[in-house]
């Protein structure tokens, strides 16, 4: 019996896979006693390779089945005239930002809070950095008081707030930055939205724990179209969202553009009423 090398076996397998029928179990049975069949029976990696080719052909065949007329499958040629679709440019920065924040996320079990009271924030521009720094101090202070089981959570919260503060510093250092109030449905101030030519930072201490199956989703609405941008994260009592606005045209939001937060099902579609919102444009 000729012993195949691993590379030879994979090459033969790839050649066999050119025709789907060659990989049907009955066709494979005919390889028993052949060098390739012997190798496949003994080699785990080639077994996986075979299974991947089988899955590929099975998936194509399954996709072409017409349930309304199983005897006459759809034609692959008719599917092949679609043009490639590109992801929206702005999605890149949204994903990057969410990933950056996700890496710093507090440990599971830390619950955000539902609206308690909407509070007025006087002289919001001057107080923003102070609010953020106090939040860091509060979280760091918590480390001193709590047991070791909460240490990782507190560290993550502190790191997240440091990142938010750094972004906020960058916003406020931009001469063209803007700050508006985030307001509750009753119109009372409940936080802030700050943005520059590059970043947008949302801060609030007015949210309380949602039900277990819901989360606070953030969105920007312009001309009646709502675009999801992520969700509110929490560090201590401070809810925050930061994002990069590279692709949004930055400080020049259109008239009536709104940043909003709504309570939505975790697994479901968005579109609920705004709990907090702020006017970005006009």
């Amino acid at each position: 019996m000729i012993q195949l090398t691993h590379a030879e076996a994979q090459e033969l397998l790839a050649d066999l896979a050119l025709e789907a029928g060659n990989l049907d179990p009955t066709a494979l049975d005919r390889l028993a006693g052949e060098p390739l069949g012997e190798h496949l029976a003994a080699c785990t990696e080639c077994g996986r390779d075979l299974a991947a080719w089988q899955r590929t052909h099975a998936a194509v065949r399954a996709a072409l089945v017409d349930p309304a007329d199983p005897a006459h499958p759809l034609r692959l040629a008719a599917m092949a005239d679609d043009e490639p679709i590109q992801a929206p440019d702005e999605l890149r920065s949204v994903v990057r930002n969410r990933a950056r924040i996700a890496i710093m996320q507090p440990a599971a079990g830390h619950q955000p809070r539902e609206i308690r009271h909407a509070r007025h924030l006087p002289a919001i521009r001057r107080l923003l950095p102070l609010v953020a720094v106090l939040a860091i101090v509060t979280v760091a202070g918590g480390v001193m008081l709590d047991q070791g089981t909460r240490l990782d959570t507190a560290r993550a919260e502190a790191a997240a707030l440091q990142a938010v503060t750094a972004t906020l510093d960058r916003v406020l250092a931009d001469p063209k930055h803007r700050v508006v109030e985030l307001r509750g449905a009753d119109g009372v101030a409940a936080g802030s939205i700050s943005w520059s030519g590059r970043d947008l930072v949302v801060l609030t201490t007015a949210l309380a724990a949602p039900p277990a199956d819901r989360e606070y989703r953030c969105w920007v609405e312009e001309n009646g179209k709502r675009s999801g941008v992520g969700q509110m994260w929490f560090a201590g009592k401070t809810g925050y969202w930061t994002g990069t606005l590279d692709a949004w045209g930055t400080t020049s939001f259109g008239d009536g553009a709104t940043f909003g937060i709504s309570l939505e099902p975790i697994a479901g579609a968005t579109g609920g009423p705004a709990i907090l919102a702020g006017q970005l444009g006009g």
Binding site: P25, L28, D29, A32, G37, L40, A41, G47, R48, L50, A51, Q54, R55, A58, A59, A62
Partner: peptide, 11 residues
């Protein structure tokens, strides 16, 4: 399982 023990997805 297939003839060689690999998984085949049936849809």
């Amino acid at each position: 399982s297939t003839a060689f023990g690999g998984p085949e997805v049936v849809r």
